Computed example of a mutant assay.
Amino acid sequence: MRILVLSDLHANLTALEAATAEEFDRLICLGDLVGYGPSQNEVIRFIRERAFVALRGNHDNALALDVECRCSPANKALAEATLAYHRTLLSSEDLDWLRALPGSVEFKLDGYRFAAFHATPRDPLYGYEITPELPDDQLREEIEGVKADFILLGHTHLPMVRGIGSRVIVNPGSVGQPRDGNPECSYAIIEDGVVELRRAKYDLFRTMEALRKLPLSNDLIDQLISTLEQGGPQ
Rank of each mutant, 00 (worst) to 15 (best):
L83S: 08
C185D: 09
C185L: 09
V146L: 01
D136L: 12
P124N: 07
I169F: 08
E93C: 06
D136K: 07
E80A: 11
F114G: 00
L134E: 14
A74L: 15
F117Q: 02
P183I: 10
S104Y: 13
S186C: 09
Q138P: 07
N58H: 11
D66I: 07
D60Y: 00
A148G: 11
L134P: 15
L152I: 00
G145H: 00
N58G: 07
G176K: 14
R99D: 03
N182K: 08
S186A: 13
F117A: 01
A74C: 12
S104R: 15
D136N: 10
L90S: 05
L65V: 02
H118W: 14
S91N: 03
T88Q: 14
L95V: 15
Y85M: 04
P135S: 03
L139P: 12
Y128V: 11
A64H: 05
I143M: 05
I130F: 04
G127D: 00
L158G: 07
P159A: 08
G154P: 02
Q138W: 14
L98W: 01
S91W: 07
A119R: 14
N61Y: 15
S92A: 15
L153Y: 13
R179W: 01
S72W: 08
P121R: 00
P102T: 01
D94M: 09
D137E: 14
L101T: 06
P172N: 04
T156P: 05
C71L: 11
S174Y: 05
T131A: 04
E80D: 11
R87W: 12
E129H: 12
P183H: 09
C69G: 13
P178I: 05
A64C: 04
D66H: 03
L101H: 00
D110E: 09
D136H: 07
T88A: 13
I164D: 06
N58D: 09
E68T: 10
I169Y: 03
V105A: 05
F117C: 02
S92W: 14
H86L: 05
L125P: 07
R140W: 10
D66K: 08
D136Q: 08
S166M: 09
M160H: 04
G57T: 13
V67D: 06
T131Q: 05
R162F: 14
R140P: 04
S91K: 03
H86N: 11
Y128Q: 10
C69T: 13
A79F: 11
A100L: 01
A100V: 02
Q177D: 01
P159I: 06
S92I: 10
N75S: 13
L153A: 09
L158M: 07
L83G: 05
Q177Y: 07
T156N: 02
P183W: 12
K76S: 11
D94L: 06
P183L: 10
G154Y: 01
A74K: 15
S186Q: 12
Y85R: 01
A74Q: 15
T156V: 07
E93F: 11
V170N: 02
F114H: 02
D60I: 00
L139I: 11
E133H: 12
Q138M: 12
H86T: 06
N61L: 13
V161D: 01
D110P: 04
G154Q: 00
P132G: 09
M160Q: 05
D96P: 09
R167D: 02
Y128C: 14
S92C: 01
A188T: 11
G173E: 02
V168Y: 08
L78Q: 04
C185P: 15
Y128M: 15
